[in-house]
Design a protein around this nucleic acid. Sequence first.
DNA 1: TAGTGGTCTAGACCACTAG
DNA 2: TAGTGGTCTAGACCACTAT
Lengths: 246, 246
Amino acid sequence: METLPDTASPLYEKVKDYVLGNIGSGRWPRNQKLPSENELVSALGVSRMTVHRALRELTSQGHLLRVQGVGTFVAPPKPQSTLIEVNNIANEIRARGNSHRAKVLVLETFAPEPQLVAAFEFPAAQPVFHSLLVHFENEVPVQLEERFVNPGLVPGYLDQNFEATTTYDYLQQSTPMTEVEHIISAIHADEETARHLAIETGEACLLLHRRTWSGAKVATVNRIIYVGSRYSLGSRYTPNAAGTHP
Amino acid sequence: METLPDTASPLYEKVKDYVLGNIGSGRWPRNQKLPSENELVSALGVSRMTVHRALRELTSQGHLLRVQGVGTFVAPPKPQSTLIEVNNIANEIRARGNSHRAKVLVLETFAPEPQLVAAFEFPAAQPVFHSLLVHFENEVPVQLEERFVNPGLVPGYLDQNFEATTTYDYLQQSTPMTEVEHIISAIHADEETARHLAIETGEACLLLHRRTWSGAKVATVNRIIYVGSRYSLGSRYTPNAAGTHP
DNA sequence: TAGTGGTCTAGACCACTAG
DNA sequence: TAGTGGTCTAGACCACTAT
């Protein structure tokens, strides 16, 4: 009969701590088979529902693997990765207490070049919607946002006033995304970019390439350029225990 | 008496679908108070434990807010954010089928300047461990990795061979992090950086500033520089339903 | 067939909040 | 005090796996 710590936490939390303790101490190494639920019931003196809840939560957090009819096992450590958050720029600027303004440079229908057709995974070339905006923080340009939008998924895109509503907010509510792809790289600003952002040609910028999916279809293809010297992407993040990804 | 869908899924899943359906359809708008658990028990004809499990899981997924003694409410939509994954570079290179090599340039005890003391949140200046490595992909330098390490938390840091084991792997297993802060920006390579990475001075690079915590203490402070033209941070990510973060 | 985990119930007691 | 959610139990039935 094992004993559980005498703290104020609920029983299922104590059971979780008991299991995590055995994993952390090495007593139950990776892939080790755990005692069955019924064995834990006897060993710990709690009901099976309580044991089950503890093991279920640890499983969903990536600590355990369970196979019906077989047993419960210590999960192998996941390939480690950490995450960086990318927020809506308007919210981020306002959260800092600064003023945000967006200026629409382009809002049109656009005949995409082959590379863009491929990014949309279209079988053949077809027109897409195209917008180009500059975002200002306290009237200083900080971001150039270029979006290409699938007209089949977002038919009303061209009718919006994106100086009032963020493209981001509009897309979020009109076409919820189910998947996002991000690629960040560092580039030198070309002449046009530099002009829009009021920087020198060649200045270092962050380029965030983003594609979003709605179901199986690509909804948007985006190029977002941040002025390197005026903006950075930041986040503070608490990994959950097993390094699980969402 | 409401009816639940006649599918093969467990009852608590049907209850979750029922609740999500009411939220999605607008019948239960944001901040709407849900029926109490006991009311749902009567309305749906299932036990309270089943209702409770459904509501608990929806709460942990960010769809609901629950306050003991008060009730259950439809959660307001979270401030949208998406996430970018940052992987261990050695794993990433090997996952692409390329060869990875690390070269240790510096591994020493170091007297930190005031800015670094502040980053560690030390009350007074004290020595830290310092390492500087270059990572090669197919013998081309792609990353310059500079780490400052809290000796109190990682006493054995200087004794490791980081050309065999990654600093990342060693730190992960010796001092599991509980929190991570990331800041990404774009910079121009200075002379020393350019020399180590075999690029031109002034070339655009990604600078990833990372601090990790172990409990309440800062464990490491890192500057990781990627060559802009040779490397980018990428990820593909499926947001979970409510835009919850992990 | 025996053992595993997955679900579900009815009932109980508790802590918390509001009136 | 009445109503809420939070926890816990004992017992049941089920689907799945190995032997």
